[in-house]
Simulated scan of single mutants.
Amino acid sequence: MSLEGDPGILVASPPAPTFGDVTDGQTVDVDVTLSNIFSTEALTVFSAVFNNSVFTISPSSANTPPFDIPIGSFKIVTLRFSPDTVQAETGTVTWTHSGINTPLVGTLTGTGVSAGTIALSVDPSSHDFGSQKTTVATAEKLLTVENTGTVDVIISAVNFAAPFSAGGTTLSLPRTLTPGQTDQFGVIFTPTAEGDITKSAGASVVSDAAASPFDIELTGEGFLITPAFILTGASEAFLLGFFKPSTGVSVVKQVDASDLDCEEAGSFKRLHDFGVPGVEKYVARIRFRYEDEGVATVKVQLDSSRDPAVSQSVSIGTTAAGSVLKNAFSNITLTHDLIEVKFSRLASGGPFVMTEYDPRIEPRGEVIEAT
C-alpha cells in the first residue's frame, strides 16, 4: 500500500526499442510508452538524454520532456533513428524523472544500410523463333536473367503467353539473386495456326524490382504441313507421318485417299506407260518436293521388265526445313516401255511429307530391233 506522497515508479515500454534496418539518410520512428505506476501523485519526466546522436526524440512526438504523467496514467514519446553511416548502431536513452527509480535507462539499437537499387534484366530482351511447323515445338531458347541492382532481387513468377510456353529449363521459385548473380529459364514456340505471331509479353519475369514485370517480346511464324503429294498426270494420293509411342519412332505411311483408315506400307509407287510403241524412251529427271520434321533418307527405285532396277538414296531435310525441291535422279537413261517408280523412307530419320512428284519422261528414238 502506497503512503501519502509516494512518488511512484516510471516504466518504459518497450524498455529497449529496436529500429531494425534503415537506409542510410532515411529515418524510422518508434513510440515509447512511459507509465506512472504505484504512485499517489503525478510523476514528472524532466529530460531524455541520448549518448549517440543518431537517436533523438522525433519532431513529430506528441510529448517532449519536461512533462507530467498523472497518477496511474501514461504518455507516449516518439523516438527517431537517423543513421548517417552504413553500420550497426547502439545507444541509450536516460529518462530523469521524479519517481523513485530515476534515472531510467533504456537501450537503443538499429542498423544503417546502403541505399540500394533493386533491378534486373533479361538477355536477350526479345527473340524471333523464325518459321516453325504448326503443332511442332521448337528447340528451347534459353533466356538469362541477371540482378543488375545493388541489393538482392526476388523473382516470384515467370509467365508465358501462348503459343509460347516454358521450356525444360526453369527457375526454382521464388528465386533470390544477389547483385550480379544470373540464372536461366527456357521458352519454346509451338504455333497452332499459320501466320506471323508477335507477343510483346511472350514471357514476363515478375519480381520485387520497381520495373516489374520485365517483358520479353517473342515472335515466330507458323506454317502448315500439307499431308499430300500430287502425281503428275495421275490421281491424288496421301503420304502421312505417324508417331509410334511403343517404339518412339516416327514412320511414313501411305494412305488411300478414298479410305483414310487404310494404312499401307511406308512407300508409294507409280507405274508409267509411255504409250508410244516402237520408240525408245528415257527418264530425264525425277524431282520431288517435301516438307520434313527431321533428317531422313529416301530411297528412290526405278524398275522395268527389260532393264535392271536402279535406285538412289537421297538424304533430305533439316528440322523445320519447310517445302524444299530435291532431285532424286537427274539425266537417267532407261530404255523401256513401262517403268515403275517407287519411293520409300529408310530407317534413318524422318518423318517427311511429300507434297509434289515430278517425273520428266521423254522419247529417245526409234526402236531398230525388238529386244
Rank of each mutant, 00 (worst) to 15 (best):
P7L: 08
I9R: 08
P17Y: 05
Q26D: 15
D31C: 09
T33R: 15
N36K: 06
F38M: 12
T40G: 12
V49M: 10
S58F: 05
P59L: 06
S60F: 10
I76A: 15
L79Y: 06
H97P: 02
N101V: 10
T102Q: 05
T107V: 14
S121Q: 04
D123W: 00
S126V: 09
S126Y: 10
D128Y: 12
E140G: 03
K141I: 08
L143P: 01
L143H: 15
T144M: 13
V158H: 01
A161K: 12
A166I: 06
G167Q: 02
S172V: 15
L173D: 12
P179R: 09
Q181F: 10
Q181D: 13
D183W: 04
F189L: 10
T190I: 09
D196A: 14
V206L: 13
A209P: 00
F214T: 11
P227I: 02
A237G: 15
F238S: 04
F242P: 00
V252H: 01
D256I: 02
G275K: 04
Y282T: 02
A284V: 04
I286H: 03
R287Q: 12
F288M: 07
D292H: 12
V300H: 05
D307T: 06
A309Y: 03
S313L: 08
A321D: 12
T335E: 00
D337M: 05
E340R: 13
V341P: 01
K342S: 06
G350M: 04
F352W: 15
V353C: 03
M354S: 00
